[in-house]
């Protein structure tokens, strides 16, 4: 430490160079001490910058909320997209071909055809819905029960619900559809897949939008945290000057501010997760009853544990980066004069 202190070394020869060659063990110990002091300063800084934030709860909470809202917005959109996507898959899995049978067709002919279809490998299941069954179902779910009672005859055709096997996709599915439609018994065959494809395209587009929005908000966060840290640096100007004068390195001066930025980010990320969970809980009941109306077992899903941790980490890193920007720009300007 004291490179030129005369009283420090009791050795008879003054100004002997530091005992480097024979001091391997000593210098190892010195390094260990320095490392320990460095670690101690890190944990000190981490704790102290957090306590400093908690000492001004109103101001810190405001910053945390800003970070939280800017994080929660893209996260919410992302979760919404995930849910819409899973909804799409949900229905795509259950994609079935409805084969409308000519009303004149005989029941045993239909049964025979259904049996041959069931035997095929590209079809996993075939269900026959007679006009009577279809009418009962329609009465139950359409809400037009009383009106339908007035009908003198059943207008609904018999239907075969053909469930293609999971391996049957794309072109195979299309050719199966044409084959079913061209059979003598069938009037028409429908596979309502177009909307699933369109949904996929829309989700793709929307996820790009979300990404763009997230990037914009991250930039905004960077500036918000940077500005907050700039103010913190200004308010501790005297302390920085003194620390620099008594031999504090740039890294030493920088450290507490970097931790402050990290805490802003992590805290904001945590609050964002809470906001997201609250929103999901609020929507859960209406979504469940809506799903019930559509005879679906769909339920809202939130972020997984990994994704939640990633969200907090990302917010923390953005906070750290914002602090780094501010510190890099402003600490150099504060030099003892």
């Amino acid at each position: 430490m004291n490179r030129f202190h005369p009283k420090r070394k009791p050795a008879p020869t003054p100004r002997k160079p530091p005992p480097r060659p024979q001091g391997a063990i000593q210098s190892k110990a010195a390094w260990r001490h320095r490392l320990e002091a460095w670690q101690a300063h890190h944990s000190n800084c981490a704790l102290e910058s957090l306590l400093r934030l908690l000492r001004t709860p109103l101001q810190s909470t405001l910053t945390w909320l800003v970070v939280a809202i800017a994080t929660a917005l893209p996260a919410t959109l992302y979760v919404a997209l995930l849910n819409i996507e899973s909804l799409g898959y949900h229905w795509q899995d259950s994609s079935q071909i409805s084969v409308f049978i000519k009303p004149a067709a005989k029941t045993n002919a239909i049964d025979k055809w259904a049996d041959t279809l069931r035997a095929r490998s590209d079809i996993s299941d075939v269900v026959y819905v007679s006009p009577d069954q279809a009418l009962v179902e329609f009465k139950t779910y359409s809400g037009l029960g009383a009106v339908l009672d007035d009908l003198t005859e059943n207008p609904l055709p018999p239907v075969l619900l053909v469930q293609p096997s999971t391996a049957t996709t794309g072109a195979a599915l299309e050719s199966l559809l044409t084959e079913l439609a061209s059979n003598g018994l069938s009037d028409d065959a429908r596979l309502d897949m177009m909307w699933v494809k369109r949904l996929e395209q829309l989700v793709e587009l929307a996820s790009r939008g979300v990404f763009f929005l997230a990037a914009l908000l991250a930039l905004g966060l960077l500036l918000v945290v940077g500005n907050t840290i700039r103010l913190a640096i200004e308010s501790r100007r005297d302390e920085i000057l003194v620390v620099k004068l008594v031999g504090g390195t740039d890294a030493y001066v920088r450290r507490p501010f970097l931790y402050t930025g990290l805490w802003y980010g992590l805290g904001g990320g945590l609050i964002a997760l809470l906001l997201l969970a609250l929103g999901l809980a609020w929507l859960e009941a209406p979504v469940a009853s809506l799903a019930e109306l559509y005879q679906s077992e769909f339920s809202l899903s939130g972020l997984s544990l990994t994704h939640s941790l990633q969200l907090i980490l990302a917010a923390g890193l953005i906070g750290l980066a914002g602090a780094w920007l501010a510190v890099g720009r402003h600490l150099a300007q504060i030099a003892p004069r």
């Binding site: 430490m1 001490h33 320095r34 320990e36 002091a37 460095w38 101690a40 300063h41 003194v242 620390v243 008594v246 031999g247 504090g248 390195t249 030493y252």
Partner: peptide, 11 residues
Amino acid sequence: ALPLQVAGYQH
């Protein structure tokens, strides 16, 4: 204590 903390002295 500031100069000592800065220089990384032990507690």
